[in-house]
Design a protein around this nucleic acid. Sequence first.
DNA 1: AAGCCGTGGCG
DNA 2: TCGCCAAGGCT
Length: 362
Amino acid sequence: MTLNTLKATEAATLLLDWYDRHHRDLPWRVSPPMAARGALADPYHVWLSEVMLQQTTVQAVKAYFDKFLTLWPTVENLAAAETEDVMRAWAGLGYYARARNLKKCAEAVAREHGGRFPETEEGLKALPGVGDYTAAAIAAIAFNRKSAVLDGNVERVISRLHAIETPLPAAKPEMRRLVSELTPSNRPGDFAQAMMDLGAKICTPKRPACALCPFGGSCRALTIADPETFPRKAGRKEKPLRLGAAFVAIDSSDAVYLRKRAASGLLGGMTEVPGTGWTARRDGDTSIDAQPFAAAWEACGTITHVFTHFELHLSVYRAKVAQAVACAEGWWEPIASLKRQALPTVMKKAIAQAIPHAFKPV
DNA sequence: AAGCCGTGGCG
DNA sequence: TCGCCAAGGCT
């Protein structure tokens, strides 16, 4: 029996029964006893977790989710926060436009919606940083709306259930239609989370555990082919290698010279040490000649960092300066407080290369 | 509308 | 080891 003959309502019931027994307990979900009584998760918690989870693993998100709720317990608190503090708290999680939009979204909810999240997909999607997926997920999980939630997990599950040959992303409209047909009126939020849990734990990218799948023999990919080969995807481009340099200056009071990157683009709005203008498209100078100011620079090795679309090799230079060189654009930050700055991982690597103890606990 | 945008873990 | 990829959105 394939999904064509298995009724959608029956399929949804099979999945919800599986979810009742095997769902993951996650910090942003309501406790199972509360959920059984029909309790819904706090929309602020759902939104915050969903934005953090965009292209990011559950494991990586957990600590950040806790930190944000401790710092800003409500959306009003987050709306009132300093953007720089939000960027500092987000540092290390990646895709920093999410943090900028997170702040803007909190402000919009607080000021334009009286502190309450819109309850419709349309209203949610109008918010900064909330796209098709996140709007549908919040509507379903926080407001029990019957919205079609389609993320990477669901794409994988649906593509296998129906053995969809069309490659992504062209297949997304068809997949969204199929998810919509499968989504039940009863417990749509649990259904969405169940599809994602299934994709994360059973219908995995590699070596799926088909023997444990609640859809069992109704999966077309399992019947006719190798489920692991779905979803079909267009080939990936190879990443170019870019070169550049980073200059770590340390003054007599053990402070490091930092400056702020442009507000948008790569690592937008984040903090950096002076570099040589490398970008995703262009190499920067790797020589000592590119020094930001005159000092006794010494080479101290290279670091490698892999971004989404290119790989970067940075030659790292270090200099001790007798006193803080006057520089209008940046500031001198004590080594002891570096870990609280909005430093992306690539910059922490560069600084750690020059000052091995910089980020180690005292 | 395809390219841009981080990071860490895993097989 | 290294390519893949994880609850995508923006332009």
